[in-house]
Design a protein around this nucleic acid. Structure first.
Length: 584
RNA sequence: CGGGCAGUAGCGCAGGGGCUAGCGCACUUGGUUCGGGACCAAGGGGUCGGCGGUUCAAAUCCGCCUUGCCCGACCA
């Protein structure tokens, strides 16, 4: 590609709002262009990188027997009504009516679509197992897109779906994806870890997320250095200490102004772990069949020294969505914010009790009377509820497996794998006849990779003060040929020669000053840079500089194509040697 | 969904009731330079986000809308 005729240009200054380096450089180097909140175009350089990432994904998916398909972005709402997600997913899914008035949606994922196809294809166990995948546009109307390509509304995703006759089959393909994802990310050059995760709107039980650890990430990951336990904070477990002693008699005490756990503990001169905190949320519960929505107050009880993990609470309460409760909703059930507990409360509410409260004795809890608390309250005797782990793990908590201190770090989710089970096949009547003649629901798994987000993470991982320096496997071109000569004759010849060798060349043939050419080359960050100038030309050679390491060398013009090919192979081999194989 | 900030040339910004709306970069033309974001000269490019209002007069003041960015979404 001749830079003199390239569609995109570089920018000297970063567009306002580019808050992280990788994003800034992608914009400035002309890889991407923003069109709206969370909506981006890929320009030629970005599109080439994305294409390379997709090719790696294809190779790896084919390697485990995936068959590539392409499903429609626009889905009839009917299949989404079958699974109930038409109702349970809120504004995140874009909906519209076609000209006849039929309900349509923009698919934000494709379990419904793929199951709809599968139920027509799979009738016998002889047809199983099967895995299909696609690389396709998704639209999710995120309430708050941010950080460039990290969190967007329209994005490209590789999503695959597996169909098996039994759990063992699902586990096999799940493990293959688990390993393949490590291969894909390492082939792209992106370091990442797999963590146990929540299945969210997908349903199902076992799930992992692939995380690129970085401060720009929005997910919090809990890890144990000692035994290797890793989990998303949303589901991370930890060891709790319980305060167990003989139950004492409940007593009401005056606690003026003690509206917070902190002030209560200091007023009574006790530790926060001897108190019971009540957190109020309102959950919305949706009927999958009718779409009818009902709100209900949820009282979450947790020991004063811990915090509630909203995600865990939502699961424990089986709510579709949570929001902080309004004061009127709390008082309507006879509870007094600041001095609240379920003791003496009335009305319709759900009480979820963290095991830290259920297994501790004689905690201080609210008396539902302004200025008063109860001493020595006990679960089971003084109040009831559903016991669950709803506590939030944080740095310093003890590992659930080995007891070592846990650490919290930030990460970007670049992929996920889910064991769906039969949630979709049952809801959509995707059954097969097994060897024993019985009809059984197909067992499914789904597996995703955010392609654009992967590029964004790579840009974040590979840059310096001058610009991008993407690894050769994903860089838009392999070689950047810069001519500093007045006459491009010799450079044109080299450009032809390199191309004839099958090398991907970005050719700087513009009439710009040397400074501009070098600065743009650094910004775009093609891994191998060839400089052709008077200095070395006298000796019949060119300068070759690696963007990644800054290493330079002098190569003779004679047979340059072959030498550069060898250089490319060397760079590629470094990456191939770093491919990670990891099995569950 | 709540709160803040912003929208003026392709990009980054200034101007804050009055006369032709400005600066840097980018762009065009001519010339000089030519290995790390060159210089001189002459140019082109604007519904000042939109609609409405106040006024003799609005980019500027007021209202509504819209778009973008940032923070929060819970610890009683």
């Amino acid at each position: 590609m001749r830079m003199s005729s390239m569609f995109s240009r570089t920018l000297r200054e970063a567009p306002s709002g580019a808050d992280c380096k990788g994003y800034e450089y992608l914009l400035r180097a002309g890889y991407i262009k923003q069109m709206g909140a969370g909506i981006f175009s890929l320009l030629p350089l970005g599109f080439r990188s994305i294409t390379k990432i997709q090719e790696i994904v294809r190779q790896e998916m084919n390697r485990i027997g995936g068959q590539e398909i392409l499903m429609p972005l626009v889905n009839p709402a009917d299949i989404w009504k079958e699974t109930g997600r038409y109702y349970s997913i809120d504004k995140e899914m874009a909906r519209f009516k076609d000209r006849v008035g039929r309900d349509m949606v923009l698919a934000m994922t494709h379990e419904e679509a793929v199951t709809d196809i599968a139920r027509g294809e799979i009738d016998s166990y002889k047809r199983l197992p099967l895995t299909v995948y696609q690389i396709q546009t998704k639209f999710r109307d995120d309430p708050r897109p941010r950080a460039g390509l990290i969190r967007v509304r329209e994005f490209t995703m590789k999503d695959s779906y597996s169909f098996d006759r039994d759990q063992a089959g699902l586990e096999k393909i799940y493990n293959e994806h688990y390993n393949t994802y490590f291969r894909i990310f390492s082939r792209c050059g992106l370091p990442c870890i797999a963590v146990a995760s929540d299945s969210g709107m997908m349903g199902g039980k076992i799930a992992h997320e692939y995380m690129y650890l970085s401060p720009i990430g929005e997910d919090t990951i809990i890890t144990c250095r000692q035994c290797g336990y890793t989990a998303n904070k949303q589901v991370a477990a930890f060891k709790k200490d319980y305060h167990q002693e003989e139950m004492k008699e409940m007593m009401k005490v005056e606690t003026p102004e003690a509206k917070t756990i902190e002030s209560l503990a200091s007023f009574l001169n006790i530790g926060a772990e001897k108190t019971c905190k009540a957190v109020f949320m309102t959950g919305s519960f949706i009927n999958d069949k009718t779409g009818e929505e009902e709100d209900k107050l949820i009282v979450a009880l947790i020991r004063g020294d811990m915090e509630v993990e909203e995600n865990k609470l939502q699961h424990a309460a089986r709510a579709n969505e949570l929001r902080p409760a309004h004061e009127e909703e709390i008082t309507a059930c006879g509870m007094v914010p600041g001095f609240a507990s379920p003791i003496g409360a009335k009305g319709d509410f759900i009480c979820i009790v963290d095991d830290s409260v259920a297994k501790s004795n004689n905690l201080v809890a609210g008396a539902n009377e302004p200025g008063y608390h109860f001493l020595n309250t006990n679960f089971g005797r003084d109040f009831q509820g559903t016991v669950a782990d709803i506590a939030s793990a944080k740095s310093g908590c003890r590992c659930p497996h080995c007891g070592a201190p846990l650490e919290a770090s930030k990460g970007v989710e670049i992929g996920n794998i889910f064991q769906l089970g039969t949630k979709y096949s049952e809801a959509m009547n995707c059954y097969f006849q097994d060897e024993d003649g019985k009809q059984k629901p197909v067992i499914m798994g789904c597996y995703g990779i955010g392609i654009g987000r992967l590029l964004a993470c790579l840009a974040e991982e590979y840059n310096d003060e001058n610009g991008l320096k993407l690894p050769i496997a994903v860089a838009p071109y392999q070689v950047h040929l810069i001519s500093l000569l007045k006459d491009n004759g010799i450079a044109d010849g080299i450009y032809e020669e390199l191309q004839a060798e099958g090398i991907e060349v970005l050719y700087e043939d513009r009439k710009e000053s040397a400074g501009v050419k070098f600065a743009d080359a650094d910004l775009i960050g093609i891994p191998i840079r060839i400089t052709l100038g008077n200095r070395s030309l006298k000796e019949g050679s060119v300068e070759v500089k690696l963007r990644g390491t800054g290493e330079t060398a002098s190569y003779s013009i004679e047979g340059l194509g072959k030498q550069i090919k060898a250089e490319i192979a060397k760079e590629q081999k470094k990456m191939d040697d770093a491919i990670i194989e990891k099995h569950l």
